[in-house]
Amino acid sequence: MFVQPSDSLIRIIDKNPFLILAIEHLKKMDYPKNLSIEDFCKQCSLPVHVFLSLVNIYNRNEVKLNFNEWNNEHIIILIDFLAHSHNYYKKEKYPLINDLLHELDIKIKTKEVKLLKKFFDNYIAEVIEHLDYEENTVFPYVKGLLFHTAPIDTNFSSAVYQEHHNDIEEKLSDLKTLLLHHVKFGNESYLARQIIFHLYELEYDLQAHSTIEEKLFIPLIQQLEKNNT
């Protein structure tokens, strides 16, 4: 469903509950949701086009970036959104899945689950490295471009970005496939089910996150770089 300014927020959440993730990453969960998108955005001082771009990407729609609509303040909102998503991955989702896999490992004690846990540990290490790169290098670099502060030396490359995203998504998809098709759980299937549900939620958010970076954030950075030269 392509979301329009006149749509009711409650209705679009009802159609796709994963939109709650987008609203939470914008830190707007406490605002009333029985409003149209336009009114909701007014209430929480959010530019409508920013909100629409994000929720439409969460709804898996193609979003066209109109550079003229995006001012510096809007790009800061986008950076905060991305940073908040990182917190959700690092502080909530990964530790949760990690604990469940650990419990599964203790209860089942098979070589597959042991390896699966190792696979997940390596995957997490890789993701954290990418998220840290964004937080410590990319975000400060973009803020430097926005506020014309001292140029920050960076090897930022959109190709590397995309490569990281593909690797992260492939490993997550493998983890899901292994759990769904190839690993036996005996009496502990409730643990496997919980892990699989968390993985689906994580995958949904990560895919939207990557698309937001590739279709909005990176082109906006490139535009800023052009304007600054």
Partner: peptide
């Protein structure tokens, strides 16, 4: 055939079908 794309994932699969033992792989 397996739906698994990464080498790390295929390694877990190979162990699960007893193609290789855990000691033979580099984790």
């Amino acid at each position: 055939k397996t739906g698994i794309k990464t080498i790390a994932g295929l390694t877990v699969y190979a162990v699960s079908i007893n193609l290789v033992s855990i000691d033979e792989i580099d984790t």
